[in-house]
Nucleic acid binder design. Sequence first.
DNA 1: CGTTTGGTTGAAATGTGTCAAACTTTGTGG
DNA 2: CCACAAAGTTTGACACATTTCAACCAAACG
Lengths: 248, 248
Amino acid sequence: MHASFHYQDNPLIRKLESIFTLTDDERQALLDLPLQVVAIKADQDIVREGDRPSRSFTILSGFSCTYKMTGNGRRQIVNFSIAGDIPDLQSLHLKVLDISIATISPCRVGFITHEALWDLCTRHPRITAAFWRETLVEGAIFREWVLNVGQREAYHRMAHILCELVVRLRAVGLVQDHACTLPITQSEFADAIGTSTVHVNRVLQELRADGLIELKGDRLNIPDWEKLKQVGDFDPTYLHLEQDQAAA
Amino acid sequence: MHASFHYQDNPLIRKLESIFTLTDDERQALLDLPLQVVAIKADQDIVREGDRPSRSFTILSGFSCTYKMTGNGRRQIVNFSIAGDIPDLQSLHLKVLDISIATISPCRVGFITHEALWDLCTRHPRITAAFWRETLVEGAIFREWVLNVGQREAYHRMAHILCELVVRLRAVGLVQDHACTLPITQSEFADAIGTSTVHVNRVLQELRADGLIELKGDRLNIPDWEKLKQVGDFDPTYLHLEQDQAAA
DNA sequence: CGTTTGGTTGAAATGTGTCAAACTTTGTGG
DNA sequence: CCACAAAGTTTGACACATTTCAACCAAACG
């Protein structure tokens, strides 16, 4: 299956290429990774809290979210994942999953066994470092979300999360002319910013009325990026991207 | 300085020993780490957002917190650190700090240059893995905090954070008979659970009135651990401790 | 083309914030 | 070791951001 697989087709490899220059050896090792590609419908759990997975997966296309539930059934989304992300890479070291991951749009994901990942890491220390770094950036995103949910009002919180999504999507080439596809429902936004769906709706209307966003269906357009950044109190440093990717 | 330093004195080494059995080689390498031990007063920043540190540090004793600020000066604490933790280990890979770390009690910290850490990791892959794992557990704590702040009411949020602190303190031997020293002010708790100081005060009184905690000054006692766990909706899985450390 | 899913609206209820003052404990210099 | 200052805690009244409930509307879809 992966014999005819070109590395340009794998957003994960493209992402690593953007962080540092891979040697031919390293690139080949990544291309040789046995990847089980699976298409998954929207709103399906890929892994669940309590699982003890023997493999991780990378998002090839589509949107997924990482979430946790409280005892009384309230859901908190703690991160969105897009092409190039490996949202459960942690399971390589932490045997029991403390999170669930679900698709929020149709996705193509590539499963990679932990065995293959261990093998890759043992042979290529720089790839180990890159993977470790990826999990650290993910950690930085969680931290920013704690700040966002803990200290900002819903209006600013919403602006902030939109900024993050746009910057991350732009970094993997999914933004053209300040516009992108965002297949996230208001109820999913609600679970992400820790408010009710009703309130998300009101806040989005406010953002629209203030000319900060144009959001209809799954299309998002940002007419005034600087203003949105300002309202969202958004500083992309925590995403630890290359300079040019973090800029407008 | 570290010539006469016994590994029992370094909570970090003790912690690693508890995760897996170190070889003599590995233990010696850790003991040989050039550690610059510094005593720091309470309420001092150790590192600040925007810094580009050339070293990390481990907490030898005392309490510190990792925090972020919004543009309008509101502070969110995203984690507490105690003996054995390396709260800025991420700076090994992420050059610019996206967080600040401050003492909240007098602390003894041990600085370790990144150079020494890289050297250690290159020579000892299992220590690399253990460090990576530590940062992943930290990430799991951030995720749980997003859930806590995003979905639970202040009363339960407070109970949850107290549960986490007690379990983590117990894991490093700082809890005797359901009681421990907790040098955290109500205003610091407020910054950690994302509420006002006034509300923390009211919630603590409620928890006291309900017989869930006894908290006076910096002494915390837990008369009814099971009840507190239940109110805090607390499941220690996310701390990824050994079975016996996670239990009551 | 009806059914489901997602979005919108209004009114009332409520958790939490803010402000301001008083009280208590802790730490410290004289 | 007292006296005072500083830091931390407690209290009450009021304001307000956000939730909840319930209904209705619009778009998507098989």
